[in-house]
Structures are given as structure tokens and as C-alpha cells.
Design a protein around this nucleic acid. Structure first.
Lengths: 154, 154
DNA sequence: TATTGTTATACTCTATAACTATA
DNA sequence: TATAGTTATAGAGTATAACAATA
């Protein structure tokens, strides 16, 4: 069954659609995710951040003193990849890396004043872009959607 | 605000959470997508298919005679990448590639009998895995979720 | 012994440029 | 001149193995 707004592509006399794949929740989720990402990634790049750098910076702002290992766990990334992101954020002086005196293996990550500013600006720009999409929902629908997504997500 | 089921990770006396990122729809969508994908990717690999090979095979089964270019457009992939997937499916004799006599630049892609069988088995296995997750929803909730996702997706 | 951070590396996925054959 | 399919390649993003410092 065809749904309003679905892209159909002509194919001889017929139409081609991806309807068969929409039987899978994963496919619908990916399409939705990619659609939102296309919007927000642009906003983040305007401030020199990739999506994952912005995610890391946001979590460091929200969780001052977090260690790289915890950050990797929360973001569901491997430790070596987190190191690269932290390097980038530190080079741009958006965060600082200081030894934890209680456990000298660990680093405590903290956003600099500049980092906090960049995070705020970028978050506002990304949120504005998301509103292009979330405007398609009533407040009640949007709340339901968020609840549903968090019921699925790890 | 913390929500039921959210992962919290201890961090000194505090807890670390990714709550700040859930302000962004894109983040919640990605978490949900990755969660479903982890389930279904395993099922597909059991039948020797990657997620994208399965998607291509499914669309070829559903749209007999589709061309590589149309397949790329529907799957939102670049043409060169589709060629690799088609090569793989053809080598495994799951699809056939025949010249379109009306436009000899084009190929018509069709699933072989074997390809149709593999697609059915894989789809059933993937659907069974998705049910682990969709069981968290009432039928009504699940229908709403699908409608919401298609309202977002391209 | 185990863990944190790190380095180097490999693998997958995706994107771009340029070619050929057909139109 | 434009399009379909292809090739080669480059760039992200992600994953694994192994090491030094610390616990």
C-alpha cells in the first residue's frame, strides 16, 4: 500500500517504490535518521564541528570531569576513536584534558569557556534545523515519538 | 529529566548520562536505529547478506526488471556503490543482469528463484529479530511509530 | 593482573572523477 | 550532448591489536 508523501520513481509503465523495505522498522528508522542528520550535520559544520565532535562536546559540557573511557561508553564508541575526537576538541581549545589526581591513569575532560559558547551556538543552530522537521508534528505527537524512540534505543 | 530504562554510568558520586543529547531528535533516532540494526544485521549475516545487499535484493524482488540507476535512486546510494552490490548478488546467483533491448545502455535486474528463496528466508529471520523490539509496543503504538517515521524520512 | 589512554592499522561504507557504450 | 554502467580511488567512520603508565 502506498503512503502519502512517498517517493515513487517511474519504471516503464510502472512505478518503483521502496515499500517492501518499509516492512522493516530498521529501514524506516534509517531513512528518518538520515533525513534529520542531513539537516543538522550542515548546521554543525557551520561551526566547524562534525556530528560526533558535537556529541562529545555536548556530553563534556553536561558532565564536567568525565573521562575518555566513560565518554566512549556513553557514546557507544571505541576508546581509540574517542581519543581522536578529544584531540581535535583540545587542539581547538574547546576542552581541556587534566590528570585525575585520584587515579593518574584517567583524564578529566572539561569544556573551556570557548567550548561552552561554541556548544551553545551549535546546539541552537542544530535545534533550529531540526524544527524544520519537527514542525510536522503536534506537541503531543512529538512527545510520543520521543518516548517510542527511547523505548527502542539501547 | 531521567527516563525509565536509560543507561546511567557512575562517575565519582555522580552519574553520567547522555540526556543532553536526547534534546536532539537525530540522536534519539540514531540510537534507535543502531539498536534495531544490531538485531537484524546478525540475522542477515546468517544468510550471507549484509544489510545493504538484503535491501537491494528485496527491492529487486519487489520491482522485477529495475535498473541499477533506479535502484541507486530508491536506495539513496551512489551508482558506483550499487554496482558492487549487484556484482555480489549476481556472483551468488541471487539475481540476473540482462540488457534492456529497448535501451541497450540499461540492465534489467531480476531475482533468480534462488534469490527469491534467500530473500524470503532472510526477511523472515530479520522480522523475527525485529519482533524482539517491536514487542515493546501495542499494535496501535507501533502503527503510530511507523506513520511518524515516514513523516520524517525522505 | 586489570584498566586507561594511546598508536598503528585495517576494514567497511560512502563519495568523486573519469572512462565506455549507447542514446 | 546526455545518460547508464563501470572502474579506480579517496575519504569518512568504525573496529582490533598491542603497547606504556598506573592501579
Amino acid at each position: 500500500m502506498m503512503q502519502a508523501g512517498e517517493a515513487e520513481i517511474s519504471h516503464g509503465t510502472d512505478m518503483v517504490s521502496d515499500e517492501a523495505m518499509h516492512d522493516f522498522l530498521g529501514y524506516s528508522l534509517k531513512r528518518a535518521y538520515m533525513s534529520v542528520r542531513r539537516e543538522t550535520a550542515g548546521a554543525m559544520e557551520d561551526f566547524g564541528l562534525k556530528v560526533r565532535s558535537f556529541s562529545a562536546l555536548t556530553l563534556i559540557v553536561a558532565n564536567p570531569g568525565i573521562s575518555p573511557s566513560l565518554l566512549a561508553e556513553v557514546l557507544q564508541m571505541e576508546r581509540p576513536n574517542v581519543v581522536l575526537i578529544i584531540d581535535e576538541l583540545e587542539t581547538r581549545e574547546l576542552i581541556s584534558r587534566t590528570r585525575d589526581p585520584k587515579d593518574r591513569r584517567r583524564f578529566a575532560l572539561n569544556a573551556t569557556l570557548r567550548g561552552k559558547h561554541v556548544q551553545q551556538k551549535t546546539a541552537a543552530a542544530a535545534a533550529a534545523r531540526e524544527e524544520k522537521i519537527t514542525a510536522r508534528f503536534t506537541a503531543q505527537e512529538y512527545e510520543m515519538l520521543k518516548v517510542f524512540l527511547r523505548r527502542i534505543g539501547a
